[in-house]
Amino acid sequence: MTDQLTEEADVMTNDVRITTKIALVVRADLQDWQKLNLTAFLASGVAASAPDAIGRDYADADGTRYTPMFGEPVMVYAADPAKLTRTLNRALSRDVVATVFTMELFGTPHDAANRAAVAAHPRDSLDLAGLAVRADRKTVDKIVDGLRLHP
């Protein structure tokens, strides 16, 4: 326990500079349940592809352990379908691999069906419901430039 407290104290006293950022872009005209559902799936894609984005475990004052979360900023933006496509193209032109969620995925029953639904369409024909990117902060800012934060 002493090692954990020392480690936590070190983190609190160090000037930690976070160089990366996560952006989730959600189609603005979706129903609330759809927005929440795809946001969770998009975040899971970032977490799976970037284990270094995950912070350390949490614990309350009683010592109860909680799972870690992202250790960097996560911003959620709203966009229409055209801006979603533009955002995806901006990410890809900067060699940033995106997590995508298409409208079809709201009706698929499992992960294999999700992948098949995306694979059935060329990139320019994807009916995007949302996407996520993680990269250097400045790169993410360029990718989402012109989008507004989700209300």
Rank of each mutant, 00 (worst) to 15 (best):
R17Q: 14
H150G: 03
P81Y: 01
A120H: 10
L128S: 05
L92W: 03
Y66I: 08
T102F: 04
F41R: 15
I54A: 06
D127S: 14
D60Y: 09
L88K: 01
F70I: 10
G71E: 03
D3V: 12
A82G: 04
V144C: 03
T19L: 11
E72K: 12
L36C: 05
G146C: 05
T85L: 01
A50D: 07
A23K: 06
R90C: 00
G45E: 05
D80R: 07
M103P: 01
L84G: 00
A43V: 05
P73D: 05
F101K: 08
A48P: 00
A82T: 09
I18C: 06
A48D: 03
A78L: 06
A23R: 06
P122L: 14
D32M: 14
A112M: 13
K35W: 01
F70V: 09
P51C: 08
M75S: 07
S49F: 08
A53D: 04
D60W: 08
A59S: 14
A47I: 08
W33C: 09
N14G: 12
L131Q: 02
A23V: 07
A43C: 10
E72P: 01
D29I: 09
G55W: 07
M75L: 14
N37G: 08
A40F: 03
K138W: 03
V76F: 03
P68R: 13
A116C: 05
T19I: 12
T2E: 15
A120R: 11
R86K: 12
A112S: 11
T99F: 01
R90Y: 00
T39W: 01
L105S: 11
N37L: 08
T6F: 10
Q31G: 10
A91D: 00
F41K: 15
A28R: 11
L105A: 13
T13E: 14
D29K: 09
S49M: 12
